Amino acid sequence: MRNHIEGWHRPLLVFAAAMGVLTLVSGVGLIVDDRVLVGSPIWHKPFKFSVSFVVYGLTLAWMYSLLTRGRRVGWWAGAVIVAASVTEMAVIVGQVVRGKRSHFNQETPFDSGLFAVMGTTIVVLWLATLLMAVVLWRQPLADRATVWAIRTGSVVALAGLAIGFLMVQPTEAQLAGQITDTVGAHSVGVPDGGPHLPVTGWAATGGDLRIAHFVGMHALQVLPLLALALTFAARRYGRAAVPAVRTRLVLVAAAGYAGLVALTTWQALRGQALTSPDGVTLAAAAGLAVAVAAGAALALRGGSGARLEPGASASPAASVVEAAGR
């Protein structure tokens, strides 16, 4: 195992391990601490953030191992991401211990200051992720599908992260002075803390920007995993063995995934719950599904009998695994 992670970003690996421990601690907190904050168990937020950061940290640590250019820049970008994320988690957990909200809290100057710190760390994290994405964009890999999965996954993930900036905008009630102890909200059309979906905590009666935020962020994992699945499928299915076909499929999936992020953002901004789409939303979703299906069909056309791209590995799965183990 040590050889497989030798080239990975060590601070990001340590951070992911620490978030794994915090996931366990937060899980225990969910069981033994019966306090409720804004309609959810008080340890729900640190639990969700810890799990997300485990996945995020491991993904970026692995992507760093693929770098052959700009490794120094990539290392510092990863280190800044760790520092910003640790700061954010320290505020979240600290506020849980105090029994206070971490996000949008303006109850006291201290709470307001902590949220301002979080706002700064989010901006820093986004910029550092952007820098990492730029470095990754320039990396030459043997498998073009993997290259485009990483490139498009990084771009969509940055868009998903940016949706978080919409949440800090004051709501109509806050602008009208009806609410003075918070600025910003996850929900649209309903107050935070109302009826919510199980596990996720997303609003069940109104829009929720966290949905698009979550979906977008995890393009960083979904699209590279799709490319990896296609490389293994190449061993058994002739068309998947053609690099151009795999690349086109990844690009179609990336476009569809970006469309899904846009669709869930639009639905949330209209104050519509994920589980209660109206006819317009359903029609848009159906149109997106048809477009993706048509794109996949076109990507597969002409795949049989096509030649491998010049310089491409005859065993793409092996090349990706080899790159990941550097």
Rank of each mutant, 00 (worst) to 15 (best):
A273M: 01
Q169A: 13
S65H: 00
G99N: 00
P41M: 06
A297K: 11
L260I: 11
D208L: 06
T129F: 14
V124F: 01
L130M: 13
S52F: 07
A314M: 06
V97A: 11
W137E: 05
V38T: 15
M89D: 06
D143G: 05
I150Y: 10
S40Y: 00
G256L: 05
A241F: 02
T205H: 12
S304N: 13
L269Y: 00
L141T: 14
A128K: 03
V252F: 04
E88P: 04
S112W: 06
G7L: 02
V188C: 01
A286W: 10
L225N: 08
L230C: 14
A244E: 15
P198V: 09
T275F: 00
L269W: 02
G287S: 08
D192G: 09
N105R: 04
E309P: 03
A227H: 04
G256V: 04
A77P: 09
T68D: 15
V117I: 14
V147D: 12
S315I: 09
E309N: 03
P198E: 06
G164W: 01
I42P: 07
V32I: 15
A212S: 12
G259M: 06
F232Y: 14
V222T: 10
A162G: 08
D192Y: 08
L127I: 10
V199Y: 13
L298E: 12
S85E: 05
V32A: 13
T121R: 10
K45S: 07
L30V: 09
A241E: 02
V86L: 15
V117R: 05
L158W: 08
H218W: 11
W43V: 05
L114W: 03
L141E: 14
W8C: 01
F115S: 01
E322Q: 14
A227I: 06
A185L: 05
I42D: 01
A157E: 00
